[in-house]
Simulated assay, not measured.
Amino acid sequence: MHRYKAVCLDLDGTVYKGQEVIKDAQLFIRKLQKAGTEPYYITNNSSLTAEQFTAKLSAMGISTSPDRIMTSAIAAAKYCKEKYEGASVMMIGEEGLEAALKFEDIALTTTNPDIVVVGIDRHISYEKLSKVSLAIQGGARFIATNKDVALPTEDGLVPGNGSFVKLLETTTGIEALTVGKPESHMLHFIQEKGYRKDEMIMIGDNYDTDIQAGIRFGIDTIYVEGGVTSADSVLKKQDQPTFMYKTMSDWHA
C-alpha cells in the first residue's frame, strides 16, 4: 500500500451504493488516512460540484476536501481550458458542469459556441438537444463528459448521459470526444498534481470504465467485486487488472 501516493477511488459501487456507504471501503479509506495518504475520488457523475461530493462523503463518515474530487465535469472544463484557451462553450448539464466551467473562467454562451459540452441533465428538453445539435453541425467541437448510457436506480436502469450523446451523434453524424472513464483524462489531471505513474493506482468495481481507465493510462489497478462487473467476467478479459479483491479490506500493506 505504501508504494502508492495517489490512490484513486471510483465512487458509486466502490465507496458507496446510492446513499449507502460500503463499510469495507470506509474502513480502508480511514486506514489510508491514518497512514498519511489522502485518496482521490474519481467519478463520471458530472451533476454535482466537488463541494457537494465532499459533503456527501462527509455525511457517510468519510472526511475529504474538494481538491481530492475529480469529476467528469471538472475534467471536461480542464480539457477545454488546456486544449482550447479562450474558446466559448454551450453546455447541456447541471450545476456540477456549470460550476466547473466557470471555475476555469470559460465563457458560457447560448449562441455560436466554439465547443459544445454535454453532461447529464435531468431536465433535458427537445429545445436543448436541438440547439446543441445545430451548434455541432455548425462547426462546434463536441465533447461529452462521459458516455454512460444508463444509470442504476432503485427502480431499475434509467437513461444516462451516454444515451443523449448517442442521440446527438446519430443526428449530427459527428462522434463526441469523451473525457470521462474509460478515457484517462481524469487520471492525467491528477498526475499533473505531481505524481509518477508508478505512484498511482486506480480502484473500482466496473471493469469497462474504472479498470480500463487505469490500464489505458498505464497505472496499476484494483478490481473490487460486488459492483457492476462480475469477477467471472473480469477473468475472461484480455487485459487483467493488477489486483483483484472481494472487498477493499483484503488489500494489505
Rank of each mutant, 00 (worst) to 15 (best):
S249N: 11
G214W: 08
H2Y: 15
Y207G: 06
T64F: 04
A6S: 07
R3K: 13
F243R: 14
I42L: 12
N206V: 01
T145M: 05
S130I: 00
K128Y: 00
P241H: 03
G160A: 07
E199V: 01
R196L: 07
R30N: 15
R68M: 01
R216N: 15
V132A: 10
A55Q: 09
I69C: 04
Q240L: 09
S133Q: 10
F217L: 05
D232S: 12
V117C: 14
W251R: 04
S233K: 14
L97P: 12
K237L: 02
A150N: 11
T43S: 14
Y40N: 01
S163R: 05
I136E: 09
T170N: 12
Y245R: 11
E94K: 05
M1A: 11
E192C: 10
G93Y: 01
G138D: 09
K78D: 05
L32G: 04
I136H: 11
K128W: 06
A150W: 11
A25Y: 06
V179F: 07
K147L: 00
Y79D: 00
A107W: 00
F28D: 06
T170Y: 13
M1N: 11
G214I: 01
F164D: 00
S249I: 00
A213T: 00
T153F: 12
Y195D: 03
V118F: 13
W251E: 08
H2Q: 15
I143T: 03
A87T: 08
A99Y: 14
K56S: 14
N44M: 01
H123S: 15
G180Y: 06
I115F: 07
A50I: 00
E51Q: 14
K131I: 08
K56T: 04
F243S: 05
M248L: 15
K5Q: 13
T178W: 01
F53R: 00
A59F: 08
G36S: 13
S133T: 15
V132F: 05
R196K: 15
A140H: 10
E154S: 15
Q19P: 05
I62W: 13
G194W: 04
S163G: 13
M90I: 02
I174C: 10
L48R: 15
D105Q: 14
V228E: 14
Y223W: 08
A107Y: 08
N146D: 15
I174E: 11
T14M: 00
Y4R: 05
